[in-house]
Amino acid sequence: MNRRTTRHRLRVLSGYVGGVLLGAVLWQVIGTIAPHEVFDSLSDTLARLWQIILDGTLGTALWTSFQTYLVGMVFALIIGAFGGLLLARRQLLRIALEPYAIALYATPMVGIIPFLLALLGFGFWPKVVVIILFAFFPVLLNTQRGAQSISPELLDVARVYRTRERDIWRHVILPYTLPFLMTGVRQSLARGLVGMIAADFFLSSDGLGGLLITASERFDTAEMLAITLVITVIGLALMAIGRALENHFARWRVG
């Protein structure tokens, strides 16, 4: 290990540590100076976090949110993957639906929530529908682009070797498309989380989003910050999972 890289690594590390410390100190100082109902210090936030962990509030909310999220994501994945493959292999359908897909993609899905509420009411399944609506698009789009971008040359190779259609799917189309699908999954994981919070906000007010809303109604800034912290950790963890999935399935893809 030579001196130059050691110094460089130290500098990078001190940047990260310094950044975290700076943020923590700023949070603590501002939280201490500002009135409690506006902003709360890091120590108060962590104390409140500990409290809601101990009394089970956080655990219950997490479990509720996790159920809707998981079910929603599974459906989003299935719809996105099959829809994407279908659109990629059926040109007429793709052309026919293209303008409507663009319009739907441009629609802020939160705007649909009040309609869903009127149509489906409160409860578990309406929330799942919201998460699906938020999350299925990136999977669909990436799968379609991936499956469509298979070079004719690869399919010609399969044809020259007299591969059966079933095997072309198994050995060429699906392996080629999978990394693209995983890019979609990575994007969907984050969007699904937005959908989950939005569903908690505007449908039956439970889960993590529900906790946030009730805390804001009590002007309980410490609890709001604590839950935001939890959501941040979940968001970062999901992003890491998404990256790992993408990298794992994209080993052969350059760039």
Partner: peptide
């Protein structure tokens, strides 16, 4: 960038 920012809305209503 990784978190659902709409979670911050309640905090913004307080501020």
């Amino acid at each position: 960038y990784a978190i659902p920012l709409i979670a911050i809305v309640p905090l913004f209503t307080v501020w």
